[in-house]
């Protein structure tokens, strides 16, 4: 059974520490959700798992079925079974969606020692386009070039459907999606759960979680997972926000890597009441 194990993960960007000891285990068939306000390190965790060159791991480990993920290049991580649906997918003019995806699927087939079958690829591509209610001209268009926010997100899920990862991380897949699109994405992602896919959903609203059911909910603050629970935790966050967690844990500012700027001059507005007494 596929297991992604993250132990005491510390990572920094430009020398600034962001992740400060993340522990997380995701097994095949499980869906985890990481929630938390903006700026707490959620997306950094996703980028570090996938090996974004900007982030430096300073401590801890990530393993996939025992194999050291941190030793792998980004493409090796992908071929090992990791997938990240990105928050802001890149636009690559000049490279068509079909060429891009064909090359990716080919690389995965080669890794598994299987022949790449072009006709089943085309068939699957067409099927996925229909299931995600995407335009038929998407394959010929350039990769995400001129796509709307919603189209880009659907294109991420489309790639995921064809690449068939073992563990998928969906980073804010709900942002930029209207309710109809969210429903379509939710259905497509849920359908993949049946194949033993392990998933990590990253979001700061619980909105997405009404379309994709998560078994385990984590809350991230200050670059760490500070609370883990089930649906009840999600409901409480939905009703009461995050402040009770901050109070419980004695956290004043949940953010990491954000410099709190001391005011360098007196705000003129702060003098408005100065002479009343």
């Amino acid at each position: 059974m596929t297991t992604l194990e993250i132990k005491n993960l510390h990572a920094s960007v430009d020398g600034k520490p962001i992740l400060q000891g993340v522990d997380l285990v995701i097994k095949a068939g499980e869906t985890h959700a990481i929630m938390g306000p903006n700026g707490t390190g959620k997306s950094t965790l996703a980028s570090v798992i996938m090996g974004h060159p900007r982030y430096e791991v300073t401590e801890g480990s990530i393993t996939l079925d025992g194999a050291d993920v941190l030793e792998m290049e980004t493409d090796e991580r992908a071929r090992a079974g990791l997938f990240l649906a990105m928050q802001a997918p890149q636009e690559v003019p000049g490279v068509t969606n079909s060429d891009f995806l064909k090359t990716a699927v080919e690389a995965h087939a080669e890794e598994r020692g299987e022949p790449f079958k072009i006709f089943s690829f085309i068939k699957e591509y067409d099927k996925a386009l229909t299931e995600l209610k995407m335009d038929a001209d998407v394959p010929e268009r350039y990769l995400n070039d001129g796509f709307s926010g919603g189209e880009k997100k659907r294109n991420e899920i489309l790639q995921m459907k064809l690449i068939k990862p073992k563990i998928a991380i969906l980073d804010e897949i709900d942002s930029g999606l209207d309710v109809d699109a969210l429903k379509i994405v939710g259905e497509n992602v849920t359908a993949m759960k049946g194949d033993g896919l392990g998933m990590l959903l990253i979001t700061h609203y619980q909105r997405m979680l009404s379309y994709i059911h998560a078994d385990i909910i984590h809350v991230m603050m200050k670059g760490r997972i500070v609370k883990t629970g089930t649906t009840d935790l999600m409901k409480k966050i939905d009703e009461q926000g995050y402040d009770w967690i901050k109070e419980e844990l004695g956290i004043e500012d949940e953010r990491v890597g954000v410099e709190v700027k001391e005011p360098t001059f007196l705000e003129p507005d702060s003098l408005a009441d100065a002479f009343k007494k």
Partner: peptide
């Protein structure tokens, strides 16, 4: 990075972009 995250190696990704 985006292209490599889909499983193609650096050379192939570069070639696609150059293409």
């Amino acid at each position: 990075y985006y292209m490599m995250s889909r499983g193609m190696d650096k050379k192939t990704s570069e070639r696609l972009i150059v293409n």
